[in-house]
Write a protein that binds this DNA or RNA. Structure first.
Lengths: 147, 147
DNA sequence: ACCATAATGATACCTAGTCTCGTTAATATC
DNA sequence: GATATTAACGAGACTAGGTATCATTATGGT
């Protein structure tokens, strides 16, 4: 028995906004559904092309709300472009594949300790950091040339 | 005996371009001198206001050449804005003061090793990374409240 | 001094994002 | 279910950052 597969993630995103007192409007539903269907990172412009019926300002407003609420995060590509991406936890980093554009969350990275040590050596009071890691994911590694 | 203090850095920058076969034009001299006089990071827009006689495209072109040659690097501010900054060595990171906007180069940071380990654990072939560190520099630390 | 051509500035254009403002629609209340 | 409040909307102007085109200028080699 197959029931209609309503992507629950879109509703989650909408709920996140609802919990903060924001209304559940149809443009926001469209935006959250579009985002929920995304694999990896995306730009506001891509959303705009995907949702011609939704105003430009509305898309940016929704993105901002979702970023502020922590549901979305921004990733810095190697070329300096900032994209949006679903955020699965609080503070974390990304392994960005330069080949296929996919991204994995970087878990278990103890960079904080290291940064605290180095900052202290520079008499610098650490308050935050931004780290992106670039390379090739397993699927994009050259498999034929193993030598 | 005080001789006219010609900022040598501007000439260095120009020389860097010269070594790569680029001509030494007066707009480029203006741009490199303006950059040489900068403390910390700056935007192309700031250069533009400082150099109204130099065309917008020329400023961006010069910045691009200097970034490509390694003389300038780009820093990512906490708000996501990218600024330019003089680069004193190859690959390095910045300690960016969120109070005064100054930046120190982060030396002796062994993040590479750590990243290689963590990447390997994710079956990810590391090729590069981008790290910015935010906080307060020594001059901006609250000095009265020591308790 | 001359000449090839690199570099320039004006301009149009693009992406990314904000702001304003008159209109629409979601929700709380009755 | 009607109504009123007000959040949210879309259109469009605007800003910042940056690229592409192209006719003109100036650099640097001969």
């Amino acid at each position: 028995m197959v029931r209609t597969r309503v992507i629950p993630l879109a509703e989650q995103l909408l709920d996140t906004l609802g919990e903060q007192g924001y209304r559940s409007t149809s443009p926001r539903k469209a935006v959250t559904q579009a985002i929920a269907g995304k694999q990896g990172h995306f730009t506001a412009e891509q959303l705009r092309q995907q949702l011609p019926g939704v105003g430009r300002a509305t898309i940016y407003r929704s993105l901002k709300l979702l970023v502020d609420s922590g549901a979305l995060c921004r990733v810095l590509l190697e070329d300096g472009n900032l994209h949006y991406q679903l955020s699965h936890q609080g503070h974390h980093h990304h392994l960005l594949c330069v080949e296929c554009g996919s991204s994995q969350d970087l878990l278990g990275c103890d960079i904080e300790d290291l940064l605290h040590q180095v900052s202290a050596a520079h008499r610098f009071q650490l308050s935050g950091h931004w780290l992106e890691v670039y390379g090739r994911c397993y699927d994009c590694l050259p498999k034929t040339a193993t030598g």
